[in-house]
Amino acid sequence: MADTINYQLAHFVASYGAVSQIPPSTCPEVSFVGRSNVGKSSIMNKLFGRKGLVKVSSTPGKTANINFFEADGVHFIDLPGYGFARRSKAERERWARLIGDFFESERSFNLVVSLVDIRHDPSALDHQMIEYLQEGGFTFVVALTKADKLSRGKRAQQAAAIKRQLNVPAEDIIVTSAEDGTGIADLKGVIVERCL
């Protein structure tokens, strides 16, 4: 296998409403998880170099299923965004179960990309997610999104603060922007390292 992934080959595979529907892992997998309005779809589209492959929603919390994409023999998994208040309690609980069931299933978790908005302190749910990944022994990186909204100095300051708050090593934090492409090459590097 080459030591790069051809993202031009990226395509949608399938959408699943329950973990029991998902076929077993047959290739390396990269899972994306984060709050509903963190910019998950935008970062994935930037990674794939495709504008609308992963549906970007004007209503946060729209992804209610687990969506699989594939590029060059690697699966990219878009998990439902967590913590969006405008959905019913039952729907929020279904998502929490879906994410929980997914991480508890037997899969090749080569890398989990946990997305956190760089402009704000991590939410209680962000903390829970990171603790869950740490306790479960998952290999993960924290991608800080929307970096283009801050000055360079402020980015560094926020990244350092979030690193401390989440108790994550500096090398596991990537400052990213779907707008100007900041950090996308670094993210691709980690994906290759973990998947190939």
Rank of each mutant, 00 (worst) to 15 (best):
M1R: 12
N6I: 06
A10C: 06
G17L: 07
A18Q: 13
S20L: 08
Q21G: 03
P24E: 12
S25F: 06
S25N: 12
V30M: 00
V30Y: 00
V30Q: 00
V30N: 01
V30F: 03
S31I: 09
G34P: 08
R35D: 04
S36R: 10
S36F: 03
N37D: 09
V38A: 07
V38I: 08
G39N: 14
G39V: 08
S42N: 09
I43Q: 10
I43D: 09
M44G: 05
M44C: 02
K46V: 03
F48H: 06
K51R: 14
V56K: 13
S58P: 10
T59W: 03
P60R: 04
P60M: 10
P60L: 00
P60Q: 05
G61L: 01
K62I: 00
A64N: 09
N65V: 02
N67A: 05
N67M: 11
E70I: 12
E70T: 14
E70K: 11
G73C: 13
H75M: 08
H75N: 13
F76Q: 01
F76D: 02
D78T: 06
D78H: 03
G81H: 04
Y82R: 13
Y82A: 08
G83A: 04
S88T: 15
A90S: 09
R92A: 03
R94I: 08
W95F: 13
R97L: 12
I99Q: 04
G100W: 00
D101M: 05
S108Y: 06
F109H: 01
V112D: 01
S114Y: 00
V116H: 02
V116G: 03
D117M: 07
I118F: 07
D121K: 12
P122E: 13
H127M: 12
Q128N: 15
M129Y: 02
E131K: 14
E131P: 02
L133F: 15
Q134Y: 03
E135K: 14
E135C: 13
G136V: 09
G136E: 05
G136F: 04
G137L: 00
F140Y: 14
V141C: 09
A143C: 10
L144W: 03
T145Y: 12
A147W: 00
K149G: 10
L150Q: 12
L150F: 15
S151I: 09
R152S: 14
K154T: 13
A156P: 01
A160S: 15
I162R: 09
R164T: 11
Q165N: 15
Q165G: 09
V168L: 06
A170N: 08
E171L: 04
E171V: 02
E171T: 13
D172P: 05
I173S: 02
T176Y: 05
S177W: 10
D180C: 04
T182P: 12
T182Y: 05
I184L: 12
I184R: 02
D186W: 00
K188V: 15
K188H: 14
G189A: 11
I191D: 08
E193Y: 06
R194N: 11
C195T: 15
C195Y: 01
